[in-house]
Simulated assay, not measured.
Amino acid sequence: MEATTRAPGPAEREPAPFRQFVVKVNSRCNLACRYCYMYFAADDGWRRQPVGASPETLDRTARRVAEHAATHRLPAVSLVLHGGEPLLTDPAELGRFVDLVRALVPAGCRVLATVQTNGTLLTAERLRALAAHRIAVGLSLDGGRAHHNRLRVDHAGRPAWPALRRAARLLAAPEHRPGYAAVLSVIDPESDPIEVYQSLLALDPPALDLRLPHGNWTAPPPGLEGARPDTARPTPYADWLIAVFDRWWASDRRVPIALFDECLAALLGQPTSGGLFGLHPFSAVVVETDGSIEQIDALKTAYQGAAGTGLHVATDPFDAALRHPGVAARQSGPDALAPSCRACPLLDVCGGGNHVHRYRAGHGFANPSVYCADLARLIRHVADALHRAVSP
Score class of each variant (00 low, 15 high):
Asp261Tyr: 06
Asp261Lys: 11
Cys263Phe: 08
Leu264Ser: 12
Leu264Cys: 13
Ala265Thr: 04
Ala265Tyr: 03
Leu267Trp: 07
Leu267Asp: 01
Leu267Glu: 07
Leu267Ala: 07
Leu267Arg: 10
Pro271Glu: 12
Thr272Val: 04
Ser273Lys: 15
Gly274Glu: 12
Gly275Asn: 12
Phe277Asp: 00
Leu279Tyr: 05
Pro281Ser: 11
Pro281Leu: 11
Ser283Arg: 13
Ala284Leu: 14
Ala284Asp: 14
Val285Leu: 10
Val286Asn: 08
Val286Lys: 00
Val286Phe: 12
Val286Met: 08
Val287Arg: 07
Glu288Ser: 15
Asp290Tyr: 08
Asp290Leu: 08
Gly291Asn: 06
Ile293Asn: 00
Glu294Phe: 03
Gln295Met: 15
Gln295Thr: 12
Ala298Gly: 07
Lys300Ser: 14
Lys300His: 10
Ala302Gly: 01
Ala302Pro: 00
Ala307Ser: 15
Gly308Ser: 14
Thr309His: 11
Thr309Leu: 09
His312Val: 04
Val313Met: 09
Val313Cys: 06
Ala314Val: 07
Ala314Gln: 10
Ala314Glu: 13
Thr315Pro: 05
Asp316His: 14
Phe318Gln: 06
Asp319Gln: 12
Asp319Met: 09
Ala320Cys: 09
Leu322Tyr: 01
Arg323Pro: 02
Pro325Thr: 05
Pro325Arg: 05
Gly326Ser: 14
Gly326Tyr: 02
Ala328Glu: 11
Ala329Pro: 02
Ala329Asp: 02
Ala329Gln: 04
Ala329Lys: 03
Gly333Asn: 01
Gly333Ser: 04
Asp335Tyr: 07
Ala336Ser: 14
Ala336Val: 07
Leu337Trp: 01
Ala338Met: 05
Pro339Ser: 05
Ser340Tyr: 05
Ser340Arg: 13
Ser340His: 10
Cys341Trp: 01
Leu347Ala: 04
Asp348Glu: 14
Asp348Lys: 13
Val349Lys: 01
Val349Thr: 12
Cys350Leu: 10
Cys350Val: 07
Gly351Gln: 09
Gly352Phe: 01
Asn354His: 15
Asn354Glu: 15
Asn354Cys: 15
Val356His: 14
Val356Cys: 10
His357Thr: 10
Tyr359Phe: 15
Gly362Val: 12
His363Pro: 07
His363Met: 13
His363Cys: 09
Ser369Asp: 08
Val370Asn: 03
Val370Glu: 02
Ala373Trp: 07
Asp374Pro: 00
Arg377His: 11
Ile379Tyr: 08
Ile379Cys: 06
